Simulated assay, not measured.
Amino acid sequence: MKTAAALHILVKTESEANALKAKIEKGANFSDLAKKHSMCPSKKQGGDLGEFKKGAMVKPFDQAVFSKGSDDKSVIGPVKTRFGYHLIRVLYTS
């Protein structure tokens, strides 16, 4: 069974997600932005979701995480789910 670990930021709008992504691309710290802006309880851990198995997350999120190579550290998203818009940084997949 494939596993992954990732950080994410969950916000209400695509425009908010895009604005945060632009800040990250300019050097802002992903975890700091997660703590400040994310709607997910994981924001207390800087957006850290820990390790999870393929199929454990909602489908669009799962597909985004497991479609990336484990060496690609770029920010994925915005990814729309029923919860809102996610920015995702995959730490590893195996």
Rank of each mutant, 00 (worst) to 15 (best):
P41T: 02
N29G: 00
I76M: 07
K36G: 04
Q63D: 15
G69M: 14
E16N: 12
S38D: 02
A17W: 01
G46K: 00
M1D: 13
D48C: 09
G47N: 02
A5R: 13
K21E: 08
F30W: 11
H8R: 09
L49I: 08
S70T: 15
D48N: 11
A34Y: 01
D48I: 08
T13P: 03
G50A: 04
K53R: 12
A34D: 03
V58A: 11
V58F: 06
E25V: 05
N18Y: 05
K44I: 14
L49Y: 08
E16Y: 00
H86L: 14
R89H: 06
A22D: 10
G47W: 03
G50D: 01
G55C: 14
K23Q: 14
G77N: 04
A4S: 13
S74K: 04
K23F: 00
D72L: 11
A17R: 03
T81F: 03
A56K: 13
I24W: 02
K26V: 05
I88Q: 02
K36W: 01
M57S: 15
M39C: 06
N29F: 05
G47P: 03
G46D: 04
S70D: 13
N29P: 00
D32Y: 02
V79Y: 07
K80C: 11
K36Y: 00
S15K: 13
Y85P: 01
V58E: 10
K59C: 02
T81N: 06
A4C: 13
A5S: 14
D71L: 10
F52K: 09
K21S: 09
K2D: 11
Y92G: 05
A22K: 13
T93I: 15
R89Y: 01
H8E: 07
D71C: 03
V75L: 03
I24K: 06
T13V: 10
K54N: 05
S38G: 03
D32L: 11
K80Y: 07
T13W: 00
D62I: 09
A5H: 06
I24V: 14
K23L: 15
V90D: 08
D72H: 07
G46I: 03
E16L: 10
H37A: 04
R82N: 14
S67E: 00
L49T: 12
G69E: 00
K73N: 10
V90R: 01
V11L: 04
